Deep mutational scan, measured.
Amino acid sequence: GTVKVQGITIKVPNPDKAYKIAKKLAKKYNLTVTRKGNTIKVE
């Protein structure tokens, strides 16, 4: 899958794990995490 952070896309082998990490970071930096299948977008 991929993770998008402010325009940066990161390929990740485990979208579930990445999503959990993204959620933690999002809370810390007051961002929104959206997930569509293997693509995770943080904005």
Rank of each mutant, 00 (worst) to 15 (best):
A26F: 09
K27D: 10
V33S: 00
A22T: 02
Y29R: 03
D16T: 07
T32I: 14
R35D: 00
K17A: 11
K17L: 15
P15Q: 05
V42E: 00
K28L: 14
K4W: 14
K41S: 12
V3W: 02
L31F: 10
K23T: 10
P13I: 12
I21M: 08
P13F: 11
G7V: 10
I8N: 02
N30Y: 09
P15Y: 10
A22R: 01
K11I: 12
L31T: 04
A18F: 14
K27W: 05
V42F: 13
A26P: 00
P13M: 13
K28I: 14
G37L: 01
L25V: 04
T9W: 09
N30F: 12
R35K: 09
T9C: 15
K24H: 11
T9I: 13
A26V: 08
G1H: 08
V42I: 15
R35W: 09
P15L: 15
V33L: 04
I10W: 02
N38I: 05
V5F: 14
Q6W: 15
G7H: 10
A18T: 03
K36P: 01
T9S: 11
G7S: 08
K24I: 14
V3L: 11
K4P: 06
I21F: 12
V3N: 05
D16E: 09
Y19D: 03
N38W: 03
L25M: 06
K11Q: 11
T39P: 01
K23H: 05
G37H: 02
K41N: 11
T32P: 00
I8D: 01
N14M: 11
Y29D: 02
V42Y: 04
T32W: 05
N30R: 07
Y19L: 10
T2W: 15
G37Y: 00
L25K: 01
K4V: 15
Q6I: 12
P15W: 14
A18W: 14
Y29G: 05
T2Q: 10
P15G: 06
N30G: 13
I21R: 03
R35A: 03
P13G: 12
V42L: 12
A22Y: 09
K20D: 14
P15F: 14
K27I: 12
I10F: 06
K41F: 15
G7Q: 06
V3M: 07
D16V: 06
K24Q: 12
N14T: 04
T32H: 08
T34N: 02
T34I: 10
V33E: 00
D16P: 01
R35C: 07
L25G: 00
A22L: 15
K28H: 10
K36M: 13
T39Y: 09
L31V: 11
T2H: 09
Q6C: 15
K11A: 10
T2L: 13
G1Y: 11
I40H: 02
I40S: 00
T34P: 00
K4R: 10
K28N: 05
I21W: 14
K4A: 08
K20P: 02
K23W: 03
T39F: 09
K23I: 13
I40C: 10
N30L: 05
L31W: 10
T34A: 04
Q6H: 15
I10Y: 06
I8M: 08
I8T: 06
V5H: 14
K20E: 14
G37N: 04
I40R: 00
V3Q: 08
I10N: 02
N14F: 12
L31Q: 02
K41I: 15
I21K: 03
N14H: 07
T34Q: 03
I8Q: 03
I21N: 03
R35V: 09
T32Q: 10
Y19G: 02
G37P: 00
K23R: 10
K24F: 13
R35M: 06
K4L: 14
Y19Q: 04
T32E: 07
R35F: 03
Q6E: 09
A18E: 01
P13L: 13
T32C: 10
Q6M: 14
T34G: 02
Y19H: 07
K27E: 12
K20T: 09
A26T: 03
N14Y: 07
P13E: 09
Y29I: 07
V33I: 09
A22H: 01
T9D: 07
I10T: 02
A26W: 06
K20M: 13
V33T: 01
N38H: 04
K28T: 01
G37K: 03
K11N: 10
R35T: 06
V33G: 00
G1M: 11
I40T: 01
L31P: 02
I40F: 06
P15H: 05
D16W: 09
T34H: 04
A22D: 00
K4C: 15
Y19K: 07
K41D: 06
P15S: 12
P13C: 15
Q6F: 15
V5N: 05
K41L: 15
Q6V: 13
Y19T: 03
K4G: 04
D16L: 07
T2C: 15
K23P: 00
V42G: 01
L25W: 12
I40N: 02
K28S: 08
A26H: 01
T2S: 07
V12L: 08
I10A: 03
G37F: 02
I21V: 09
T39C: 14
I21S: 02
G7Y: 10
G37C: 02
N38P: 02
T9N: 06
V12R: 02
T9A: 08
K23G: 06
I21L: 08
K17P: 02
K27H: 07
T39M: 10
A26G: 06
K28E: 09
L25C: 13
A22G: 04
L25R: 01
V3A: 07
V12I: 11
K20H: 11
V12A: 04
P15R: 07
I10E: 01
N38F: 01
V12Q: 02
T9M: 11
V3K: 05
T32N: 09
V5E: 03
I40P: 01
K23M: 13
K28D: 08
K36D: 12
A22N: 00
N14R: 05
N30W: 11
T34D: 02
I40G: 00
K24Y: 13
Y29V: 05
I21Y: 09
L25A: 01
G7K: 05
A18D: 02
T39W: 11
